[in-house]
């Protein structure tokens, strides 16, 4: 029986999971859409991972979660490590590309840049609290153009004269886009323009003041768009590496972090049969009126968060067990 490690990355758009060995060999991996339901997605993911998994010879001894739903999913899976996606991505990528100097990442609602020196992340930047120039921007524009977001890259590379589009803000970009369509720009040029705009926006905001050195690895959902990859190569003047497992790097990083951590807890796939629900309550203990998230497993509250002070814990306990609080 060999000990292995599971990493789960639950993003706003997609949910990724891997099970890796001590030697970073991927035993099973899966990539599904989150569809606005992180708990449902993770249960489905675990079921899919289990199908590929050899329970006779391996056992999962530690679980790491990352991504924007890491806390919720970490509670559901009783994870041993809950880590932010930037650290997880840096750890995952430097394991597979030890010589990398710059990691570019554009995901569904976040974009970030990580600078690496000697295999260790030394600096990074992330988009401020606005989703301009991320995957969300591309998918909303693809809906407007009536092109599936997966096909945008192929269409973009056909263009000879990419249209100039302002990508500073989704709202402005949209009105710019509509105008350009109406005056007669072709679809290829507009899609190519969108890809250029994403890159320009990224380099001017997230990449501002950062020295981008080769080798450059590009990952996140948008890295599957060849149009954006080509636009990066044009603007940076260096080759861009897109790892076929790039979308799994966060999950792999989470698994590696779980392995490095000392805590061990055997995971035996029983979450599929449990029922998890979340409820939002308002504390009401003071004018802040914090929104507290309570997580229930089979009707029993297992965790809560979101409160700014200890008054919120009382409110959460009250919500978990109304009779006990009255005593």
């Amino acid at each position: 029986m060999e000990d292995v490690y599971m990493g789960i990355d639950v993003g706003s758009i997609s949910t990724k999971g891997v099970i890796i060995t001590k030697e970073n060999k991927i035993l099973s991996s899966e990539y599904i859409w989150t569809e606005g339901n992180p708990i449902g997605a993770v249960k489905k993911l675990v079921r899919l991972l289990e199908k590929q998994f050899d329970k006779e010879n391996y056992r999962i001894v530690a679980t790491g979660t990352t991504g924007s739903a890491r806390k919720l999913v970490g509670t559901v899976l009783s994870a041993t490590v809950v880590k932010n996606e930037i650290t997880a991505h840096a750890v995952g990528t430097t394991t597979f590309h030890p010589d990398v100097r710059t990691i570019l990442e554009i995901g569904g609602q976040d974009s970030k840049i990580i600078l690496v020196e000697n295999g260790v992340a030394v600096d990074y930047a992330m988009n401020t609290l606005c989703a301009a120039g991320t995957g969300a921007f591309l998918s909303s524009q693809s809906a407007r153009l009536g092109i599936p977001v997966e096909d945008m890259g192929e269409i973009a590379v056909k263009s000879q004269h990419p249209t100039q589009i302002a990508a500073r803000c989704t709202v402005f970009a949209e009105s710019d886009l509509v105008h350009k369509i109406q005056v007669g720009h072709t679809k290829e040029d507009i899609v190519a323009g969108l890809c250029q705009a994403v890159v320009g926006n990224y380099l001017n905001n997230v990449g501002k003041g950062k020295k981008i050195q080769s080798p450059v690895v590009f990952q996140g959902g948008v890295s599957k768009n060849i149009g954006v990859v080509k636009a990066f190569e044009n603007q940076l003047g260096c080759p861009i590496i897109v790892d076929p497992d790039g979308h799994l790097m966060g999950a792999i990083g989470a698994a590696i972090l779980a392995r490095r951590n000392k805590e061990r807890r055997v995971f035996n796939f029983d979450v599929e049969d449990m029922e998890f629900i979340t409820r939002e309550i308002n504390c009401g203990g003071c004018p802040n009126n914090c929104e507290i998230i309570c997580v229930y497993r089979n009707g029993e509250m297992i965790d809560s968060w979101g409160n700014r002070c200890e008054r919120g814990d009382v409110a959460a306990r009250k919500a978990a067990n109304p009779n006990a609080a009255a005593v």
Partner: peptide, 30 residues
């Protein structure tokens, strides 16, 4: 660089701070 607005969610803030601290720690180890 962090820009605060009138939002009540703290997730974005925590992600940024947590990862920044990780980077500082890793850098210091190097």
């Amino acid at each position: 660089q962090m820009t605060l607005d009138a939002q009540t969610g703290t997730a974005g803030v925590e992600t940024r701070l947590e990862s920044f601290l990780d980077i500082l720690k890793m850098r210091k180890e190097v």
